[in-house]
Amino acid sequence: MAAISADNHGLRLAVRYAVLILIAIIFVFPLVFMLMSSLKPDQQLLQDTASLRAFLPVGDISLANYSAAFDRAPVTLFIFNSVVVTGITVVLSLLVCSMAAFAFVFIGWRGREFLLTVILATLIVPFETIAIPLLLIASKLPSIGLDGLSTGWLNSYHVQIVPFIADGLTVFLFVQYFKDLPSELIEAARVEGASWPQIYRRIVMPLAGPVLATAAILKFLAMYNQYLWPLMVVQEEGYRPVMVGLQYFFQQNVAWGEVMAYLSMITVPVLAFYLYLQRAFIASIASTGVKG
């Protein structure tokens, strides 16, 4: 009896892993294709797409595409710019939006309902449709720099950051999550005389690990993949981010190997960020535990 159920258990486990692995293959194969292609010369890369060789490091393998990509464009600079802009925006966004969501969920105040509705409605506005008016606004904003007061936010990091700190989606993520938190905790803290900022900092945010991770990765992706806006407001190469940099590789005859190498390189920071978040995310769940 015991032997049979152990066998059964082993078989079921094997099936489970088989399913998990099959699904994993479906999700990963284009990325394997990208990585492998980045190692191949153009001619071979294109021929290999017709067979399983597309996923294997076979043939004339080298890092030549990577060095060629560095010759063609300042890859490190682009990645650096994107990481700076994205990193700062994510941190500020989490702070500003979680505070707002806290106010919407836990505090009663005049204008709360109206404001939340308006902010949620902004979710619907695709960025592309407000880009031109936004450009006109950004080009009139004052800025204080080393050379004193001037107008126009073009060619800077802040023009790529500030407009994106607060957005409806991030607020919405926090609001939905906060609604699930036990309100007794907040009430108890109020009774004990804690101020709102104290409750935000000491009680709510320590419980917000999962939503922080979700909001952070979503914001990270949105910012890292910015194309239209930096194209409009950045004319100096020094501030250019990765997605605009991608266009350097689309010349008359596209060097697909270099494209794949560049794509592989710009994907690494995002993957690293996610893996880091996933660890932090699991740690935060393990540490808070008490929920619901």
Binding site: I107, A166, W196
Partner: peptide, 20 residues
Amino acid sequence: KFQRSNRAGWVMAGPAAVLI
């Protein structure tokens, strides 16, 4: 849940509201 505090509400939601 909705203990009233106009000031705290606006202060905490303010930055996001202004930016949006």
